[in-house]
């Protein structure tokens, strides 16, 4: 899908219950992410954020509903759908015994990135993340932040239309974090989209075009900051206030 098309990610009535559990981890979730949009996905611990992301990238199968990535159904046509995704999980365990470059070459081969394109992309991204001098070291020797940066580099190598990130800011130093935020913005400016989960509400508030809040598996709010403010009691509330108000645990008498 090219920039300007309807939406890059569409979830329709998606539900997931883990085997042996009576509670739905994700319950009838529907949302859309349009091209050029940074979508922040928020929720308390155990709300269903990671389960949703895992279903979007094909690591889990939904029980009901449809997930359409760049007009491909992730269940029916997973390979095509995954080609449109760049994904970084919350704790990116990479292959410790490969070098950074070997890892990036593997990703580039799998996504079919040509030698010329990958050379340019890898050089640009490595120098942006200040990782160029370590790229021939084995990943085992990397710090958590360096692994995070390498995973981000790998996920961006094929210039994916949809960038999916689970807690991307964890482990990044302030400079990399800033660079990464700029990169997300630039990515969306090209007509692509970013869908990311985070607990850092200030980042979401500043960066996201739209925000979805999930609690107990259900999407309880979704929209721009202005739209969310309309849902709360006060009109000048911060995202943190809105989040806490909407996700307040039920009081037991």
């Amino acid at each position: 899908m090219k920039a300007g098309d309807a939406c890059l990610l569409k979830l329709e009535g998606v539900s997931k219950t883990y085997r042996g559990s009576s509670n739905k981890a994700v319950d009838n979730l529907s949302l859309e992410v349009a091209p050029g949009e940074i979508f922040g996905f928020l929720g308390p611990n155990g709300a269903g954020k990671t389960t949703t992301i895992k279903m979007i990238v094909g690591l889990l199968m939904p029980d009901n509903g449809r997930i359409i990535v760049d007009s491909h159904d992730i269940v029916k046509d997973p390979v095509s759908a995954k080609r449109s995704i760049g994904f970084v999980p919350d704790d990116p365990n990479l292959y410790n015994r490969l070098t950074g470059l070997e890892y990036l070459n593997l990703v580039a081969d799998v996504y079919g990135v040509s030698a010329a394109d990958r050379a340019k992309r890898i050089r640009d991204l490595l120098s942006m993340f200040d990782l160029a001098s370590e790229v021939n070291d084995i990943i085992q020797s990397y710090s958590h932040g360096m692994k995070q940066k390498l995973a981000l580099t790998g996920a961006l190598l094929h210039n994916p239309p949809l960038f999916i990130l689970d807690e991307p800011m964890v482990g990044l130093d302030p400079r990399s974090s800033r660079l990464f935020k700029d990169l997300m913005r630039n990515h969306c400016d090209q007509g692509y989209a970013v869908f990311f989960s985070t607990h850092i509400l200030e980042v979401a508030e500043r960066l996201c075009d739209r925000v979805g809040i999930i609690d107990k598996g259900r999407l309880i709010a979704c929209g721009s900051m202005d739209e969310l403010r309309k849902l709360s009691s006060e009109t000048d509330e911060s995202l943190e206030d809105i989040f806490l108000e909407l996700t307040l645990p039920e009081q037991v008498d």
Partner: peptide, 17 residues
């Protein structure tokens, strides 16, 4: 320390895996 000298190999996905 010399990113400009990094070599890139291109393989089929099967072989690369």
């Amino acid at each position: 320390g010399k990113p400009e000298r990094i070599r890139f190999s291109e393989r089929t996905p099967l072989l690369s895996l």
